[in-house]
């Protein structure tokens, strides 16, 4: 099977373009890496775990209910391990020698913008459901009081975090390391507080105000959308912590800040989605606009 054996030597002489796998595992294969394969197996394992979990539910379960979560956790280990190895070899191992190519920056930024484009569609389906039921008889049943102090405070916290992140980034661009690190820390803290607020809100709604999603027309929209958004904020907080830690290690400068800017884009996007969500889902449902 010698197709690319013959061709692998064609990639040496094309200018100074940085090839991704100069130091990788397995060695000696030129452009080769186990990490995508391992990560893919881990990622697929999530789905197999989810499938087994579904099969293990209910009275007519055909597998033990613990099999699904077990596979899921094992897959998570594999997935995260694969991801770590991937990022380690691609960005970390020779980080200090690796020059700053404008080329790489722009590709990664464009990729983030495109990913956010896909996110619009991901959220879109849930919002379409909400608009569908909103166009029908309203309200579809008893609704708890949605728009309260908690939401307002939480929203303000998230919006504030976007500002602190922005000024952290400008601080970095002005080589103001103190401003960068301080505001990054504040952003991360605000993000975590927001997640805490969301958890508290879920607790309030489910336990005290009887909002549920089983068979509930509004509950499906509410938990579907806020849950999806909550997952995104959680991922955002993880990304922020990675940036924060790398910032503490001094890996950023006014010239090298690609991941700061991509993570910022993501965080601002999640923030905007939240504002939209509050306007249509909380305010819109409550006041029947």
């Amino acid at each position: 099977m010698g197709v690319a054996d013959e061709t692998s030597d064609d990639h040496g002489g094309h200018g100074g373009h940085h090839l991704p796998a100069v130091e990788d595992w397995p060695r000696g294969f030129g452009e080769a890496s186990w990490w995508p394969f391992i990560t893919a197996i881990g990622g697929s394992g999530f789905y197999i775990g989810a499938a087994l979990y579904v099969l293990g539910r209910g009275d007519s379960a055909i597998v033990s209910p613990m099999v699904g979560p077990g596979v899921f956790i094992a897959s998570a280990v594999m997935f995260l391990g694969g991801l770590y190895g991937w990022l380690y070899h691609a960005f970390v191992v020779n980080f200090w020698e690796h020059g700053t190519g404008e080329h790489d920056d722009s590709t990664l930024r464009l990729a983030m913008i495109l990913f956010l484009g896909t996110e619009i569609a991901t959220f879109g389906a849930g919002f379409v459901y909400y608009f569908f039921i909103r166009a029908g008889t309203w309200p579809p049943g008893e609704l708890p009081e949605l728009f309260g102090t908690l939401v307002i405070v939480n929203t303000l916290i998230l919006i504030a975090s976007s500002f602190t992140l922005h000024f952290a980034h400008t601080g970095l661009l002005k080589d103001n390391r103190k401003q960068f690190l301080g505001l990054m820390g504040v952003t991360l803290l605000l993000g975590v507080i927001f997640i805490g607020g969301q958890v508290y809100e879920y607790y309030e709604f489910i336990v005290h105000r009887g909002l549920e999603f089983q068979g509930a027309v509004f509950g499906s929209a509410f938990f579907g959308l806020t849950g999806l958004h909550g997952l995104h904020v959680t991922l955002g907080a993880i990304l922020l912590s990675i940036v924060f830690i790398r910032g503490l290690l001094g890996q950023y400068s006014a010239e090298r800040h690609t991941s700061v800017s991509t993570v910022s884009m993501y965080w601002h996007f999640v923030d905007v989605v939240w504002v939209f969500l509050v306007v249509v889902l909380y305010v819109g449902a409550e006041f029947g606009i």
């Binding site: 990639h11 995508p36 893919a40 197996i41």
Partner: peptide, 19 residues
């Protein structure tokens, strides 16, 4: 020289057979 993200390319493929 190659795709912009060669390894995302590879993972994009390797998710397909399990799917």
């Amino acid at each position: 020289d190659d795709m912009a993200f060669p390894r995302i390319n590879a993972i994009g493929f390797w998710l397909l057979p399990p799917a």
